[in-house]
């Protein structure tokens, strides 16, 4: 049976509370996983493990966070995503809202794309097809 966005949000929230030690009320749709909730790189693995268990899904490396793209010099130049890189990034991250990001696609700003809503969108795509 398909899950509603609210149901997904609640379970994503539980995973984030447990992985990051934040309070329930910090889990809002637009909260940034790193900047607002304090996640460090290892926490993304922890979150991935918890999401896989909570939703009984598999999250292949590079699917939720396409960090593999950033190691390709064709896609990144002078700290910015190239046109080609941006195209690949958009394809790889249909679950993120890139409206603002494309105006100034700084690599350093990529982690700000990961909000609670980004993860909810990703999980919705996995559990509801």
């Amino acid at each position: 049976m398909a899950m509603t966005e609210q149901e997904v949000l609640e379970k994503v929230g539980e995973a984030l509370v447990e992985a990051l030690g934040v309070d329930d009320d910090e889990i809002t749709a637009d909260a940034k996983i790193s900047a607002d909730l304090g996640a460090e790189s290892i926490d993304y693995l922890d979150i991935t493990f918890r999401l896989e268990k909570a939703f009984d899904i598999k999250i292949p490396r590079g699917e939720l966070i396409p960090d593999n793209l950033l190691n390709n010099p064709e896609y990144v130049k002078d700290g910015l995503l190239t046109e080609e890189g941006l195209t690949k990034f958009k394809e790889a991250m249909p679950h993120a809202d890139l409206t603002e990001f494309v105006k100034n696609p700084l690599v350093d700003g990529i982690m700000d794309l990961f909000t609670v809503q980004t993860i909810v969108n990703y999980v919705m795509g996995k559990v509801n097809g």
């Binding site: 290892i42 922890d46 493990f49 268990k53 490396r61």
Partner: peptide
């Protein structure tokens, strides 16, 4: 052992 992938485990 709960999780085991190439780069990490829990």
């Amino acid at each position: 052992l709960e999780n085991f992938v190439d780069e990490a485990s829990s």
